[in-house]
């Protein structure tokens, strides 16, 4: 485990070396941004709307009391979405979608000697392959989380009003009352670190693949497991530090 951590740090050191040609790196970064951000929008959107709707119903079920105003349902759903559900669930889903893809892409390049070809040419292979993915991850995942928060809250409105658990007016008042903008900062900090974890861990797993296509598959599976655990640990640490 310590050996792996040491190699991960050394890989990151190589990743952040000065690029040979920024122009080519920018092209790769924009390509990765489309892949990580735009291409994940649909999945994150669907998940966020349903999570928001289900959360509203469950909060309404647990807060069935004449002493508690219905607007609380909106407030709780909003804060849950901002602080936990949107960043963490999005990150866990993206660890599966993007993480396994990055790991298998880089792993395949390793076993087919494409990484060796880069090194022979004198190119900093970790920087060329991994840096664009990390930059795209730490910029696009926070943006996806913002979209997710919005859709989560909209999903809560649809679910709550459709089922009759809460009126539209109560829900709207709930989500607008007592809003603390710092929760958005916490959410974006989480998203930034989750983006870094997903892209760097998956790249590390792929970069050090040895053997054949079978190993690429195994690395892909390990990526999802390690990324998910790392995301949950980071979630706890960031929450503890910031709240």
């Amino acid at each position: 485990m310590f050996t792996d951590f040491g190699r991960y740090i050394l890989l990151l050191k190589a990743v952040f070396k000065r690029p040979e040609q920024w122009k080519i790196y920018w092209k790769n970064i924009s390509h990765e941004m489309v892949y990580i951000g735009v291409n994940s929008l649909y999945l994150i959107g669907i998940i966020s709307v349903f999570v928001g709707a289900v959360m509203t119903l469950q909060i309404a079920f647990q807060l069935q009391s004449d002493l508690i105003p219905k607007t609380i349902i909106g407030s709780v759903n909003r804060d849950s979405a901002i602080l936990e559900l949107s960043p963490t669930i999005s990150a866990l889903v993206l660890a599966g979608k993007i993480g396994s893809s990055i790991s298998s892409e880089i792993g395949t390049m390793r076993v087919t000697e494409q990484i060796d070809a880069l090194e022979i040419m004198g190119i900093n292979a970790p920087g060329f392959l991994i840096l664009p993915k990390i930059i795209a991850g730490v910029t696009m995942i926070p943006l996806l989380v913002i979209v997710s928060i919005a859709l989560n809250i909209i999903g809560g409105y649809i679910g709550g009003t459709f089922s009759g658990a809460i009126t539209g007016a109560d829900y709207y008042r709930g989500i607008t009352e007592g809003f603390n903008p710092f929760t958005i900062v916490v959410s974006l900090v989480k998203a930034f670190f989750f983006g870094f974890i997903i892209t760097s861990v998956s790249a590390y797993q792929g970069y050090y693949v040895k053997g054949s296509a079978l190993e690429v598959g195994r690395a892909s599976t390990s990526t999802v497991v390690i990324s998910c655990i790392s995301i949950l640990c980071a979630d706890y640490v960031i929450t503890d530090l910031l709240l």
Binding site: T112, E113, A117
Partner: peptide, 17 residues
Amino acid sequence: DIRKEIGMLFQNSALFD
């Protein structure tokens, strides 16, 4: 500097897919 003077053909060609 030396690497820039090296060309290599790999067993499976190793072209960038």
